[in-house]
Design a protein around this nucleic acid. Structure first.
Lengths: 240, 240
DNA sequence: TGTCGCAGAAGTGTCAACACTTTTGTCGAC
DNA sequence: GTCGACAAAAGTGTTGACACTTCTGCGACA
């Protein structure tokens, strides 16, 4: 309880040490916010792999002290999005081919698990809309090569599955590895025939989910990713 | 340039910031080192869940500036071993039951993958020593309730499998989730019959590996963890 | 003309002091 | 005697300055 009516002492005379900045009191951007912005930039390749991130620049841009930028870079390093070399700064990680395959091995089992859990923990009807989407409109999008709307809906399904799986630790892991390969999505989808194959596999998985066959859904998701990996292997020279 | 005749403060009182210590200049403990020490303490419950970690104390103990301790705590927070509450400090995470089950769901597929990859990427003979160990000596250790040697060898096998799987991303993930449940190992092994069942399941997995049956090894590892989870569910009130 | 060395610049790493928040202990009013 | 307010203490958050390392450009020498 405590209620305590906090003393409130501190009216403090509105002269914070920071530049007054009359309008837009501009709260000073948390580490979480900075990390989010930089993640997005790296994913969209606004900052290309190999580029250097200079602390002073970022501090200026976000209007925070360098220390906070350092914290943010440390967080990005933990996630594997940048590498830091002592006294030389932070560099956007350049993902090499072997790491991509390692990640696909993981996605295979993790997204398989995700499909199984989502099936077990959600009423089957939940997935009918998604199935219809992938059977109809998505097919057209692929045929007409409209990648962006396709990707958007694909990611929506992905998020829905993770949410339905109801396992935060799994969600965190999928997030971590997904953001590393996000840059590849477009390049993979252009591979001859890949998008349509992927769509069919999603349909197969969703059908299993609607029939309540959790293990089958897992198996089909795994097969889907396995075949994606095979495609990647075949065309690797065009990807990286 | 700056010239600036630096206030010079520091020569004062012959106390350079580091203890003089003529030889053995005691390098000042890197973040990695501090994180390692704290990880170990948390795993062994030298620092119990819920305990507060005070920055100044740690800074004094390791002989480093508080900033470095803060970096270390941030790293531990990322790994989920401590929680930090603004202005109130870092507290060792208290793992709740639901998270434990979520982690076991993950271990099931991740260690399954690990077993499969290890089988595919290593000559079968590699595992014969381990099999004999688990068939013979380990059985005795369990019968005589010598937990510590048993755990030591169990972890050695675990490390060998991860190493053999040759997937660094997987290794990193297993590490992350394993250290969170490490504190439970002893409590689980005491459960009636659990240790012996686990041993038999390891034997079954190793046999599959020696026969080169990667998928079978994966399946058996998954079954092993599934049954461990079931055990945990049954006796959860004695564990947490 | 090419190369090596050496200052200066630029950028990261570290630190100690200061600012702010929460907690704790004490005193007075009811 | 209990509750509530206040002040001091303890601890965390933030900042700017300083130290150190690496990179870059210039000039001397072979």
């Amino acid at each position: 309880m405590a209620a305590r009516a906090r003393p409130k002492t501190r009216a403090a005379a509105g002269s914070p040490r920071r530049a007054p900045s009359p309008r837009a009191a501009r709260k000073p951007a948390t580490v979480a916010h900075i990390v989010g912005v930089l993640r997005a930039r790296i994913a969209r390749q606004d900052i290309p792999p190999g580029a250097k991130l200079r602390e002073a620049d970022l501090a200026g841009e976000f209007g925070v002290a360098r220390a906070r930028i350092r914290d943010s870079l440390a967080a990005l390093e933990q996630r594997g999005l940048v590498e830091r070399i002592p006294n030389r700064g932070a560099v956007v990680t350049r993902l090499d081919l072997s790491q991509v395959f390692h990640i696909y091995e993981l996605r295979e089992v993790l997204e398989g698990l995700c499909a199984r859990l989502a099936t077990e923990r959600t009423p089957p009807e939940r997935w009918r809309r998604e199935l219809e989407l992938f059977q109809g409109p998505m097919k057209d999008l692929i045929a007409r090569n409209e990648l962006d709307p396709y990707i958007e809906r694909y990611e929506a399904l992905r998020r829905a599955l993770i949410e339905a799986a109801g396992n935060p630790v799994l969600a965190e892991m999928l997030d971590t590895i997904y953001e590393k390969t996000q840059v590849l999505i477009r390049r993979i989808l252009i591979l001859p025939g890949r998008a349509e194959i992927g769509r069919q596999q999603h349909v197969a998985m969703l059908e299993a989910m609607i029939r309540g066959k959790a293990d089958l859904a897992e198996q089909r998701r795994r097969e889907g990713l396995k075949s994606a990996r095979a495609h990647l292997e075949k065309f690797q020279k065009y990807i990286l």
